[in-house]
Write a protein that binds this DNA or RNA. Structure first.
Lengths: 343, 343
DNA sequence: TTGTAAGCGTTATCAG
DNA sequence: CTGATAACGCTTACAA
C-alpha cells in the first residue's frame, strides 16, 4: 500500500540513495533529478518511514514527556501543565520533534518495558521532559543517569545532561507576603502546596523568608497544607477561619486552591478582601473573573514551556553543552482579593 | 553503549531469534534458556529498540493524538481535554500503547511532513485520536481516508475505520432548559459555543429543541455566541444584561464561560440565582466551589477518554470491526446557581 | 552528480 | 525447542 523509497526510486529512474538525498535536502542533487523525484513522490503520496529512519540514524526526533499522573497528584489535570505542554509542543515542533507522552507506569505484561527509564530507552527518544515529578521520585535519578538530554519542570534534578526549569517560586511568595504586609496585614497565614514538590517547598520557603525579614512571627497554626487543588484550599481555609484569632490575610500557594478558599470565606459569611485578604499563585485563566478578582503571582507558563523546549533542543544539538538551571521571573498581579489596605 | 539483541544473544549463548522469543513471551522456549536470557538481560539492562521492532512488525504501538491548538481555539487549554487525555493515556497504556502528541502543524522545512495526515503516515501510528478539530476541518476527511483506526472526540467523522465519541450534548442541553423551565423560567437565553464544533452546535440544537417542545419562543436576542472560554461568557452575559427585557435564566454551554457570566452578573449588581439563574455544561473541577456553586450538565470526561481508547484498541485488534459512534450519557448536577424556583 | 552495498536492531519463516 | 536467514525502509560511506 504505502510506497517506499525503492518504489519511488524505480519510478523516478534513480537510486534509493538519490531519493534519500532529495528528501534530506542534500545540495548535491541536480535540479532536474530533484524535481523529478519530488513530482513522483507527490503522485505516490510518499512519506518516509520514521521507524526506518530512526533505526539507521539512531535519532528518533521524539521528545519523551513524562507526567506523573498518580492518584495522589493528578498533575496533568492541573491547568498549569496544559499551558506548558502547549508551548512545549509548539516549540519542539518547530525544531522537527514530536512529543511522546508516556502512558501509565503501571506494570504491564512482564517483559514489556514499564519503568519510565526503560521506556525512554526503548523508544530512543532524543530528549526528555519531566513534569509533575516529586523532588524525591526515584525515577528522577535513574533518568538523569541516562545521559539523555533532560529538562525537569518544577523539579530539582542533577545530572550532566539534565537541567531544571521553573518559576522563581521563592521570590513570588515573598512578593505576595510583602504586598500583604504593605497593605497593613500582620496576621498572615499560608495554605501551602505539598512540600515534596519544588513549587510547594519553595513557595513556603519564600513565605517564611519574607515573614522573617518583616519581623513577623511564623506561627504554626497559620501554616496549612494543601495539595494544589481546589478542595484542599476550601478545607484549609475552613480550618483557618475556625481559629480564635484567624489571620487577616492568606497567601494561597495556588490559584486553584484559592478558588476553594474564597468559597470557604464567603460561606462563612465573611467577605474578601474586607474581612480576609487572599493572594494566589499561578494566574490561571479564570483568576481575573472570580469574585473578587484574584490577586496572584503570575507564572509565565508559555515561557516555561518554550524555555524548556529550547534548552532541550540546544542540548540535543550540542553534545558538549552543560545545561544550567533556569529560574524564570514571576510577577505580582494586583486585583481585588487583597483589597487596597486595611481600613 | 546500549546493548542490542546480538550482544545479549552472544552472552546468553543462544541465537538472537531465541532472545526475541523470550522477550515476546513465546511459549516455545525452555525454562532454563528463558531464565538465562532474562538474567543476562537484567545485567546488561537490555531494552529492545522500538524503532527496529516497528520496522519489522509494521506496528508502532503508538497512538497519534491530534489536538487542534490553533490561535482561535487553544483547545488543549480547555480543562475538558486534560481529563480526557489522562484517561486516554491510561487506557491505551494498559494495552501497550504510548501516545504521540503531534506538534505544531506550522509548515516546517519543506520536504518534512507537516500536515497531520502526512505525520500520521510518517510515524506509522497504529491509531489516531482527534480532539478539538472543527467539524469541517479539511484534515478530518484526509485522516478518515487513511483507513487507520481513528476516533474523533466531539467531532463528527465518517469513514470505514473512523468512529466518533462524545457526550450527548443535545440531551444535556435539553435537560438544562427543562430544569430551568420547571423552576418557572420562560425567558431563557443561551450563551452558545462555536457552531462549527459538534458540542457547540449540538448544545444549541438541544436548547432550541427543548424550547420548542416547551412551547417557548426562541428569540434571536436571547441567543449569544461564545467560544467556550471564560472571557466570552463575560462579554455575552453583559450583552444579555443590557437588554431591556433581560432573560431570567441562561443556559451557558460551558462552565468556563459560566465563570465569566457569573462575574458579569455580580458586577452588574445582580444576584445569581435570585435575579438570573445560570446552568453550565461540563462540570469542571471548580464548578462546585464557585459562588454560587454552579448547576451544570456533567460530562464524564474520564469515560469519554476510556471509551475512545477502548474503541481504538478494538479496531486495531480486529481489522474487520466496523466502528460505531458512541454517545455517552450526561447528567444534570443541580447546585445553587439555578435557585430552587422562581419566587 | 549518482549508484552500490552495507548495516541499523528487530522479527518471522523455515529448517532442523 | 533452537538456529540461520531474510526481510523491514532508510541512510551513508565509498565508488564511479
Amino acid at each position: 500500500m504505502a510506497a517506499n523509497i525503492h518504489e519511488l526510486a524505480r519510478l523516478s529512474g534513480v537510486s534509493p540513495a538519490t531519493v534519500s538525498r532529495v528528501f534530506n535536502g542534500y545540495p548535491d542533487v541536480s535540479d532536474a533529478t530533484r524535481e523529478r523525484v519530488l513530482e513522483h513522490a507527490r503522485r505516490l503520496d510518499y512519506t518516509p518511514s520514521a521507524a526506518a529512519r530512526s533505526l539507521v540514524r539512531q535519532r528518533s526526533q521524539l521528545i519523551g514527556v513524562i507526567l506523573h499522573t498518580g492518584l495522589a497528584h493528578p498533575d496533568l489535570q492541573h491547568p498549569f501543565f496544559q499551558d506548558v505542554l502547549v508551548a512545549l509542543k509548539n516549540t519542539v515542533g518547530r525544531a522537527g520533534y514530536d512529543l511522546l507522552l508516556f502512558a501509565t507506569d503501571q506494570p504491564l505484561a512482564e517483559p514489556t518495558p514499564h519503568s519510565y527509564e526503560k521506556r525512554i530507552r526503548h523508544q530512543g527518544v532524543d530528549g526528555v521532559v519531566l513534569m509533575g515529578l516529586d523532588t524525591r521520585d526515584p525515577d528522577l535519578a535513574k533518568i538523569a543517569a541516562l545521559r539523555i538530554p533532560t529538562v525537569a519542570i518544577d523539579t530539582e534534578i542533577r545530572g550532566p545532561r539534565a537541567a531544571a526549569v521553573g518559576s522563581d517560586n521563592v521570590a513570588g511568595a515573598r512578593l505576595a507576603v510583602r504586598h500583604l504586609h504593605l497593605l497593613g496585614h500582620t496576621r498572615i497565614a499560608t495554605i501551602a502546596g505539598p512540600t515534596d514538590t519544588a513549587p510547594g517547598a519553595d513557595r513556603l520557603l519564600g513565605f517564611r523568608q519574607e515573614l522573617e525579614e518583616l519581623g513577623l512571627p511564623a506561627e504554626a497554626r497559620y501554616l496549612l497544607d494543601g495539595d494544589f487543588y481546589a478542595e484542599s484550599g476550601y478545607a484549609a481555609m475552613n480550618v483557618l477561619l475556625a481559629l480564635t484569632d484567624p489571620p487577616t490575610a492568606v497567601f494561597v500557594a495556588a490559584d486553584l486552591m484559592a478558588v476553594g478558599a474564597l468559597r470557604a470565606i464567603q460561606e462563612a459569611g465573611l467577605r474578601c478582601p474586607e474581612d480576609i485578604a487572599v493572594v494566589g499563585f499561578d494566574d490561571i485563566q479564570i483568576a481575573s473573573l472570580l469574585m473578587p478578582a484574584l490577586t496572584t503571582v503570575r507564572q509565565d507558563k508559555g515561557l516555561i514551556g518554550t524555555t524548556a523546549a529550547e534548552a532541550l533542543v540546544a542540548m540535543i544539538d550540542d553534545p558538549a553543552l552543560r545545561p544550567e538551571a533556569k529560574t524564570l521571573p514571576v510577577e505580582l498581579v494586583v486585583r481585588d482579593s487583597c483589597g487596597s489596605g486595611r481600613s
